[in-house]
Simulated scan of single mutants.
Amino acid sequence: MENFWTEVLEFATTITKRVGSQLISDFGRLQATKKEDGTLVTKADRWADEEITKAIAAKFEDHGVLGEETSHIFPDKEWCWIIDPIDGTTNFTRGVPIWGISLGLLYQGTPVFGFVYLPLLNQSFYGYWYGNSGLKGPEGAYLNGEPIHTSLDDPSKSHLFNLCARSIEVLKRPFPCKIRMIGVASYNLLLVANGAVLGGVEATPKIWDIAGVWVIVQAAGGVFIPLNNQDIFPLKIGKDYGRQSFPCLVVSRDELVPTFKPLVEFVGKN
Rank of each mutant, 00 (worst) to 15 (best):
K261Y: 15
T33R: 13
H72N: 14
L152F: 10
D49W: 08
R180V: 06
I168V: 09
E7I: 09
H63I: 11
P75K: 10
G222T: 08
S167C: 06
G222K: 01
K206N: 14
I182H: 00
D231M: 05
I232V: 10
P119Y: 12
I232T: 03
T90F: 12
I168L: 11
L171R: 08
E78P: 03
I73S: 09
V116F: 01
I15Q: 05
E50L: 12
E146G: 07
F92N: 01
P234R: 14
F115M: 05
L103C: 00
E51F: 06
W129M: 04
E202K: 06
T150M: 05
T70K: 05
D254M: 13
G20P: 05
P147T: 14
E50K: 08
T53I: 10
W79T: 05
G95R: 11
V223K: 00
W214N: 04
L106Y: 02
Q31A: 15
W47K: 07
P75D: 11
F224P: 01
D154I: 01
Q123V: 13
G38H: 15
F74C: 03
E61P: 09
E10R: 15
W47T: 05
V257W: 09
T90L: 09
S133R: 11
G183V: 11
I225R: 00
W79F: 08
D45S: 04
T110C: 07
L163R: 02
D37L: 06
N91D: 12
D49T: 11
Q123W: 15
T16M: 09
A203K: 01
A193D: 04
A57R: 11
A165G: 10
K261H: 14
L30K: 03
G114F: 01
R173E: 12
L30W: 03
W129P: 00
P258E: 15
N194Q: 12
S151F: 04
F233G: 01
E78W: 15
S25M: 14
A12Y: 00
D231W: 06
G140C: 12
T150V: 07
S151R: 03
P176Q: 13
A55W: 05
L256A: 02
P119T: 12
L227C: 07
V65G: 00
Q230I: 12
F60I: 12
E265F: 13
A196H: 07
L189F: 09
V170F: 08
L189E: 02
L191A: 08
L256S: 01
N122K: 06
F125D: 00
Q244N: 11
C164E: 06
K206G: 06
F233D: 02
P176V: 15
L103D: 02
G268Y: 09
N144R: 06
K136W: 12
V65I: 15
I24V: 14
K269I: 14
D76N: 15
P205L: 07
A58Y: 07
P262A: 07
V197K: 00
P262W: 15
K35G: 06
G140H: 10
D231C: 02
G88C: 10
P75T: 13
G212H: 02
A220Q: 04
V112T: 03
A44N: 03
K172A: 09
P176I: 13
T14I: 13
N188T: 11
K17I: 10
S156I: 04
P247H: 12
I148N: 01
I24T: 13
W47C: 05
P226D: 14
